[in-house]
Amino acid sequence: MASKKKSVLFICLGNICRSPIAEAVFLRLLNERSLKDEWEVDSAALGTWHIGHGPNNRTMKTLKKFGVTDYKHKARAVTRDDFTRYDVIFGMDDANMEELEERKPTNCSAKLKMLGEYDPKGERIIRDPYFDDERDLGGFDTVYEQCVRCCTNFLDQS
């Protein structure tokens, strides 16, 4: 009998910047380690502004810059079922975590964690680069690098 897949859901406010980067990084790590078949991975939003849209163009430019060229995603909102479907739901900052705690149903089986808890550099908050200058990818690069550190550390411990 096959064992149940492990599962993670990455959450941010709009599901077009931080959580898609985290999802793409995690999927890349799983591919590199030949573990993709053992995991279910997704990302979602707390807000509904971008539902059905792809990631921000700066997100996609950043992923491409770091060699992730096959990522596809449409923003979706977190659902009540996500709290029982996933083993771990990762938020990116304190506001995400507060909102997840408020929305958490009584039958929640997922562990709610801040992705930055796994940063070996101790950078707990993954700052939202959405409102940065449109021409500056620096904030997106920082998110990518944080996600690589955090996702690698989390996967090493799983």
Score class of each variant (00 low, 15 high):
Ala2Gln: 13
Lys4Arg: 15
Lys5Gly: 02
Lys6Gly: 03
Lys6Arg: 15
Lys6Val: 01
Val8Lys: 00
Leu9Gly: 01
Leu9Gln: 03
Ile11Arg: 01
Ile11His: 02
Cys12Thr: 00
Cys12Lys: 05
Ile16Val: 15
Cys17Pro: 03
Arg18Tyr: 11
Arg18Ser: 06
Ser19Glu: 07
Ser19Ile: 04
Pro20Arg: 04
Ile21Met: 15
Ala22Arg: 05
Ala22Thr: 03
Glu23Phe: 02
Glu23Val: 02
Val25Tyr: 00
Val25His: 00
Phe26Cys: 09
Phe26Trp: 07
Phe26Lys: 08
Leu27Cys: 12
Leu29Arg: 07
Leu29Val: 01
Leu30Trp: 11
Asn31Leu: 11
Asn31Cys: 09
Glu32Cys: 05
Arg33Trp: 07
Leu35Ile: 02
Leu35Gln: 15
Lys36Met: 06
Lys36Cys: 03
Lys36Arg: 14
Asp37Asn: 14
Asp37Tyr: 01
Glu38Gly: 11
Asp42Trp: 07
Ala44Ser: 13
Leu46Gly: 04
Leu46Glu: 02
Gly47Asn: 13
His53Ser: 14
Pro55Trp: 01
Asn57Leu: 10
Asn57Met: 07
Arg58Ala: 08
Arg58Gly: 05
Arg58Asn: 14
Arg58Leu: 04
Met60Ile: 14
Lys61Ser: 13
Lys61Tyr: 01
Lys64Ile: 08
Ala77Gln: 15
Val78Asp: 09
Thr79Tyr: 03
Asp81Thr: 12
Asp82Glu: 08
Phe83Arg: 08
Thr84Asp: 00
Arg85Lys: 15
Tyr86Ser: 02
Tyr86Asp: 01
Tyr86Lys: 03
Val88Asp: 05
Phe90Trp: 05
Gly91Tyr: 10
Met92Cys: 11
Asp93Ser: 06
Asp93Trp: 10
Ala95Asp: 13
Met97Ile: 14
Glu98Cys: 00
Glu101Gly: 04
Glu101Met: 12
Glu102Gln: 14
Lys104Trp: 02
Asn107Met: 04
Asn107Leu: 04
Cys108Trp: 09
Cys108Gln: 07
Ala110Asn: 02
Lys111Met: 08
Leu112Tyr: 07
Met114Leu: 15
Met114Lys: 15
Leu115Thr: 06
Leu115Pro: 06
Tyr118Gln: 04
Pro120Glu: 11
Pro120Gly: 08
Lys121Val: 03
Ile126His: 07
Ile126Ser: 03
Arg127Ile: 09
Asp128Gln: 08
Asp128Ala: 03
Phe131Pro: 00
Glu134Gln: 07
Arg135Met: 12
Arg135Tyr: 13
Asp136Thr: 09
Asp136Phe: 06
Leu137Thr: 13
Gly138Trp: 03
Gly138Phe: 01
Gly139Gln: 11
Thr142Met: 14
Thr142Tyr: 12
Thr142Asp: 13
Val143Tyr: 09
Val143Cys: 13
Tyr144Val: 13
Gln146Gly: 01
Cys147Asn: 08
Cys147Leu: 12
Cys147Gly: 12
Arg149Tyr: 09
Asn153Cys: 09
Leu155Gln: 09
Gln157Asp: 10
Ser158Val: 05
Ser158Glu: 14
